[in-house]
Amino acid sequence: MASLVNMAAFVAVVEQGSFSQAGRELRQSTAVISARVAKLEQQIGTRLLYRTTRQVVPTEEALVYFERCKSILKDVEDAEAALAPPDRNPRGSITISAPVAFGRRCLAPVISRFAEHHPELQFRLQLTDRLIDLVKDKVDLAIRMANLEDSTLKARMLSHDHRVMCATPEYLARAGTPRIPSDLLKHKCLLLRFPGSTQFQWQIIERGRLVTMPVKGNLDTDNGDVLTDWVLEGRGLAVKSVWEIIEHLNSGRLVRVMLEYPPDSHPIWAVFPGGPFLSPRLRIWIDHLVGAFKSWDPHHPERFG
């Protein structure tokens, strides 16, 4: 049977792309890492890595084995963490998924400061504007800005995502300023579109009711930063979170429109897989995250506390 230390060495080599990098990650020599992977290959009777002087390439079998090894090592890590005294410093890895702009601008600083005080924790921040499957993608926690549908996930609210409809003064001078919802149908609307997205059908509040507008435009993207670039270039109207564009609103590069008919805003959630067991490291991180965002102001998105 393959040993856990040899599995850990193999996983590190695949993740880091080299024996030397894996050695630095695990604080072991390159020779020790190489020997552990060779021992693992001998134990399971399968070649896992093609080695050259310049690179290490996993075999086809290795890619399947790699995912199973990661799952096994994480289960062992969680089991040991559950037995740890409550006052011991948390240790292990936490994988987080977040929207690109929010993760880079708002979440990354919180992670950095928390990690400084918990050096035995390893954070892996994955940035994507797509809706990921936490269980399938092996993510411990994800940030969602939406009204959550019923699911097996647990969630804790962090704040609210206040959104505005905006455009450049140049675009409005050229195309006119929309005043009522039906005016939106005459404009080029910049859309955030990906599987699961509904933003190509803007939802606005009209006299206290939620109204869906089937807006259209010739530009859509699955990346929020690209959407910001396009609206700043004067390509059309966009619905953006206040924290994303506050500096452009303050400078006058972007102008709010349709103030009487604001876009629907959503809570910002931290979601994580349900179940009876939550690792101590994830629990302490979630509690810290909720506390950090209690003082968060979308008009000053980099400030916490």
Rank of each mutant, 00 (worst) to 15 (best):
A2V: 02
L4M: 11
V5E: 01
V5Q: 02
N6A: 00
N6Q: 02
A9W: 00
A12W: 04
V13D: 00
Q16I: 01
A22G: 06
R24Q: 11
T30M: 04
T30P: 04
V32P: 01
S34P: 00
R36Y: 02
V37R: 00
A38H: 11
K39T: 01
L40N: 01
Q42A: 05
G45W: 11
R47C: 06
R51I: 13
R51L: 08
T52R: 13
Q55N: 11
V57F: 11
A62T: 02
F66H: 15
E67R: 15
D75I: 02
E77A: 14
E77F: 09
E77G: 09
E77H: 13
D78Y: 08
A81I: 03
A84W: 12
D87C: 04
R88H: 13
P90N: 01
A101G: 13
R104P: 01
R104V: 04
L107H: 07
R113H: 03
R113S: 04
F114A: 00
L127W: 03
R130N: 13
R130Q: 13
R130W: 13
L131N: 08
I132F: 03
I132T: 14
D137N: 13
K138Q: 13
D140A: 11
L141F: 04
L141H: 04
L148A: 08
S151A: 12
T152K: 10
T152H: 13
K154R: 13
M157Q: 15
S159E: 10
S159L: 08
H160I: 05
D161H: 09
H162W: 14
R163G: 02
T168P: 08
P169H: 09
Y171L: 07
L172V: 07
T177G: 11
R179F: 05
R179V: 12
P181Q: 12
D183A: 12
L185H: 12
L185I: 07
H187L: 01
H187R: 10
H187N: 00
K188R: 05
L191A: 11
F194W: 08
Q199S: 09
Q199D: 14
Q203H: 14
I205L: 14
E206H: 11
R207A: 10
G208P: 03
R209L: 02
N218F: 13
N218T: 15
D220W: 03
T221Y: 03
T221H: 04
D222Y: 02
D222W: 07
L227D: 01
T228L: 15
T228D: 14
L232T: 06
E233H: 06
G236S: 02
V239L: 10
V239M: 13
V242K: 12
I246R: 10
I246Q: 10
H248K: 06
L249H: 07
L249D: 11
R253H: 09
V257I: 15
M258E: 05
Y261G: 06
D264Q: 14
I268S: 08
V271T: 14
V271G: 04
G275F: 07
R283M: 09
L289T: 08
F293W: 12
H300W: 03
